[in-house]
């Protein structure tokens, strides 16, 4: 059941991304427009992450998302997406006011990866630490150099989206345990009430 939820979630995200990428009109309607904020910002801050600018862009963002989402429990993925999607969109809008269009899963992928690092730290602090260190180092280099570690062609990613993703991932990771505890308490209270 747990695996079904993950597969369904990954498939839904990838399918929506493919539609928004290969249907330019839909992509234009869904992409974030930092230089032209209006009421549509409310949905664009969620939908923009599904818009990609080329098949290659979608392929690598999609495959990263699929791997990370496959490793995380579905509820954690959904919770992290719910928090990081608007945060990344707001940070991008604030940081790049002249940008005409923003899209891509990489910002939320960073958040998911950090959330996964916290998840892994639950059973291996070493792996969790190195995963977190790796993503922070990569983002720091991007921020410092003004371009990504590996990607040098077609377009240069928005480094602040990755910074925002990491920050929300850390918040999600820190809140994970108290959240789980609260869920446990809620479940126990519910059982206790029934009894």
């Amino acid at each position: 059941m747990k695996n079904h939820a993950r597969i369904l979630l990954i498939a839904a995200v990838l399918l929506a991304s493919a539609i928004l990428t290969f249907c330019p009109e839909a992509g234009e309607a869904a992409a974030l427009r930092p230089n032209h904020c209006d009421a549509s910002f409310l949905w664009r801050m969620s939908t923009c992450h599904l818009v990609h600018w080329s098949a290659k862009h979608l392929f690598y963002d999609g495959i990263c998302f699929a791997i990370i989402a496959a490793m995380l429990p579905a509820w954690e993925t959904i919770a992290c997406l719910a928090v990081s999607a608007p945060v990344v969109a707001i940070v991008v809008t604030h940081s790049y006011p002249e940008m005409t269009a923003y899209g891509g899963l990489s910002g939320v992928n960073c958040a998911l990866f950090v959330a996964w690092a916290f998840h892994v730290a639950g059973y291996s602090k070493t792996i969790g630490f190195w995963a977190l260190a790796a993503i922070i180092a990569k983002t720091f280099v991007e921020y410092h150099e003004g371009h990504t570690f590996f990607v040098t062609r077609e377009f240069i990613p928005t480094d602040m989206a990755h910074v925002a993703g990491i920050a929300t991932g850390i918040i999600c990771g820190i809140c994970r345990k108290p959240f789980l505890k609260m869920i446990d308490i809620a479940i126990n209270y519910s059982k206790f009430s029934k009894n």
């Binding site: 600018w53 269009a101 990607v151």
Partner: peptide, 27 residues
Amino acid sequence: PRHGNGMFQYHAPHISHGGGAMDVWTV
């Protein structure tokens, strides 16, 4: 590319690029 400003950004070339990117190494 369909977005961003590439070299056409006058003062700070990193300002207006419009998307995140992962690549084969990240994967």
